[in-house]
Amino acid sequence: MTWDDLMQGKACVDLGPRALWKLSGPDRVRFLNGQTTQDIASLRPGQAAHAAVTSAKGRMEGDIWVTHRGDSLWIDAPFELRETLGPRLDRYLIADDAALEDITGSHHLWHVPGTLLPDSVAAARFLMPGCDLWLAPDQTVPLPVAAPELAEALRILQGVPLWGRDIGPQHLPPEAAFERDAISYRKGCYIGQEVIARIKSIGHVNKRLVRLTTAAPGPLPPLPAPILHLDKAAGEMTSACLHPQHGTGHALAVLPRALAETPSEVEIHGTPWKTDPLAVYLPHRPA
């Protein structure tokens, strides 16, 4: 199984295990719309959308995907958020006619980049067309499974941050470049919206996710790796890979705005790297 196979929809990526909840009830859409940065009301059956759950101060409490299952919404998140995100959502289920059920372990998530298979869910998890396959433990994966290093290369090359490594509760969604696909600026109110809207009106954040590239990486440094700019500490490289075909180095980091918005040269373990802002600044999902 090759890189080309993965990019042409002939292989799938193992994205499990994931924390998974089922939200049901007549008020499920209204409730979740008031808890996330995404316009959940715009979802249609068979579609999934990226979103963030934020605090009143706009900091991220969860990096989630929401799937429209017809009579319910499925919410999935990194497994390490299972103990905190469920109670966080349940705490606000007061007057809404909705029920949140933890169904972690009932299904495993596989993703196929580049195509849409029958009975799958349309989801751009790697900021490109693709589909999710939620399979029960006794179901067989219909495609070859990509090696973990290929899946990791796809994630980094597409500029998709990983919760707990590249981003976390210390970040605001715009710092993680979530406006590409996870923030709607036209929906109704949600917890943290005032902060996110203020950032949009200002026009920038002080630091931001950026991709880094180098033509001659040599051995990749242990992570996290300190980043220097003009001999001063600028941040840390948190994810890194070699391109499966070209051997070039690619990485992710959250850097100060001056480096994240303008192509700049930085140094990592004595090797020159360049920031690649356009690789992560894509249009956000239409609201």
Rank of each mutant, 00 (worst) to 15 (best):
D4R: 11
L6K: 09
Q8D: 14
G9L: 02
K10V: 00
A11Q: 15
V13C: 12
V13F: 03
L15A: 06
L15P: 00
P17S: 12
P17M: 12
S24A: 09
Q35K: 10
Q35V: 11
Q38K: 04
I40Y: 12
S42N: 05
G46M: 07
Q47Y: 05
A48E: 02
H50N: 15
A51N: 02
A51L: 04
S55M: 10
E61P: 04
E61V: 05
T67L: 09
T67E: 08
H68V: 01
L73S: 14
L73V: 10
D76C: 03
P78E: 15
P78G: 12
P78C: 07
P78Y: 06
E80Y: 05
E80C: 08
E83N: 10
P87K: 05
R88T: 09
D96G: 10
D96Y: 14
D97M: 03
D97H: 08
D97I: 03
A98C: 12
L100D: 12
L100N: 11
I103Y: 07
G105W: 06
H107F: 05
H107E: 15
H107D: 06
H107A: 14
H108N: 02
H111M: 03
H111W: 09
D119C: 02
F126L: 10
L127K: 13
M128R: 14
M128L: 12
P129I: 08
G130K: 01
G130Y: 06
A136K: 11
D138E: 15
T140P: 01
T140Q: 13
P142Q: 01
P148V: 08
L150D: 12
L150N: 01
A151H: 00
R155A: 10
I156C: 03
Q158E: 15
I167Y: 01
H171M: 02
P173S: 09
E175T: 02
A176G: 06
A182F: 03
S184C: 11
C189E: 14
Q193E: 07
A197V: 06
R198G: 02
K200D: 15
I202H: 12
G203D: 11
G203H: 05
L209R: 06
A216Q: 15
P217R: 03
P219V: 06
L220V: 11
L223G: 14
P226H: 04
P226N: 05
L228Q: 13
H229A: 15
H229M: 03
G235M: 00
S239D: 00
S239I: 00
C241S: 04
P244I: 03
H246V: 07
T248C: 08
P256Q: 09
A258T: 11
L259R: 07
E261V: 02
T262P: 04
S264E: 04
I268N: 00
I268Q: 00
G270D: 10
L278V: 09
V280A: 14
L282D: 05
P283V: 12
